[in-house]
Structure formats: C-alpha cells, structure tokens
Measured scan of single mutants.
Amino acid sequence: GEEMDTAEIARQVKEQLIKHNIGQRIFGHYVLGLSQGSVSEILARPKPWNKLTVRGKEPFHKMKQFLSDEQNILALRSIQGR
C-alpha cells in the first residue's frame, strides 16, 4: 500500500470531529472499533507510517476512508445526536 501521512490524517479527523461535534468515543466505536483511550492516543500522537505494524496501520486506513466520504461524517453526526 501507499505510505500515509498519519499526522495529517489525524489532524483532519480531529478537525471533522470538532466541526461536527462528534465525540471520540462514538468515532472510535463506529469507525475504528477501538476504545476512546486508543482513539485519543492515535489522534494525539500518531506514529509515523513506517513505524506502524500492519495492525497499527488499520485505523489510518479506516480514518482515510471515513474522510473520503462526507456521508460517513453525516451518519456519525446523526448517531451522536440521538
């Protein structure tokens, strides 16, 4: 696969979550399948791509996919709003 700019992906995700008022817990649960603790760690201190294991890269693939389609963001927003 291609190398990803993990810091940039994390920054964009944080931006979207704040902009749409989506909590990290909801994002972690529905998008990444991770706990809030793992999510906040990944978003606060993303490791460089070449330092990640295959498993460590997974959340970034999912985040990139999440960012690529605004429908994903809107869907999360409606879950959050319940």
Results as ranks from 00 to 15, higher is better:
71 Q>P: 02
50 N>T: 08
44 A>V: 08
46 P>M: 04
70 E>I: 07
57 K>V: 04
25 R>A: 15
56 G>E: 15
31 V>Q: 01
23 G>N: 15
18 I>T: 14
25 R>N: 13
18 I>R: 14
15 E>Y: 10
70 E>M: 08
17 L>S: 03
71 Q>D: 12
29 H>F: 08
77 R>L: 10
48 P>Y: 01
4 M>I: 15
72 N>K: 13
3 E>Q: 10
59 P>W: 15
8 E>W: 07
38 S>E: 15
41 E>T: 06
64 K>Q: 14
67 L>S: 00
72 N>L: 06
32 L>M: 05
42 I>A: 05
70 E>Y: 08
60 F>K: 00
71 Q>C: 09
60 F>H: 03
25 R>Q: 13
15 E>S: 14
59 P>T: 15
68 S>A: 11
30 Y>S: 07
6 T>C: 02
45 R>G: 05
64 K>M: 11
49 W>F: 02
82 R>V: 14
12 Q>L: 07
81 G>Q: 15
3 E>K: 11
49 W>Q: 00
36 Q>G: 12
46 P>T: 03
63 M>G: 00
53 T>S: 14
64 K>S: 08
6 T>E: 00
20 H>V: 03
61 H>T: 11
82 R>H: 15
43 L>W: 02
7 A>G: 08
41 E>A: 09
15 E>V: 07
8 E>T: 09
54 V>Y: 12
76 L>V: 05
77 R>I: 09
22 I>E: 02
37 G>N: 12
35 S>A: 09
2 E>P: 04
71 Q>E: 14
21 N>K: 11
82 R>E: 14
75 A>M: 12
71 Q>W: 06
56 G>M: 08
55 R>C: 11
51 K>C: 09
15 E>F: 05
55 R>E: 15
43 L>G: 00
5 D>Y: 03
61 H>R: 13
37 G>R: 14
7 A>D: 08
3 E>P: 08
62 K>S: 04
63 M>C: 05
13 V>I: 09
35 S>Y: 05
61 H>Q: 14
25 R>Y: 13
3 E>M: 09
71 Q>A: 13
2 E>A: 09
31 V>R: 00
44 A>G: 12
14 K>V: 12
27 F>V: 01
68 S>Y: 05
80 Q>C: 12
48 P>C: 06
58 E>Q: 11
32 L>N: 02
55 R>M: 12
1 G>Y: 15
51 K>L: 13
17 L>C: 04
69 D>F: 06
54 V>E: 15
23 G>F: 06
72 N>W: 08
8 E>Q: 09
51 K>N: 13
27 F>H: 00
3 E>F: 15
69 D>C: 08
50 N>F: 06
59 P>C: 15
2 E>F: 09
30 Y>K: 10
59 P>D: 14
59 P>G: 12
74 L>G: 08
5 D>Q: 07
64 K>I: 13
78 S>H: 11
82 R>K: 15
24 Q>I: 12
23 G>P: 15
55 R>G: 12
74 L>H: 13
26 I>V: 14
56 G>A: 09
3 E>I: 10
44 A>D: 14
72 N>Q: 14
9 I>R: 02
65 Q>E: 14
51 K>P: 00
62 K>H: 05
46 P>G: 02
58 E>K: 07
41 E>K: 02
79 I>Y: 10
67 L>T: 01
80 Q>N: 12
60 F>T: 01
19 K>A: 08
29 H>W: 09
82 R>L: 11
81 G>K: 11
44 A>R: 09
43 L>P: 00
78 S>L: 09
3 E>H: 12
56 G>S: 06
19 K>V: 06
22 I>L: 06
45 R>V: 07
65 Q>M: 11
3 E>S: 09
41 E>I: 04
55 R>S: 13
65 Q>R: 11
34 L>W: 06
18 I>M: 13
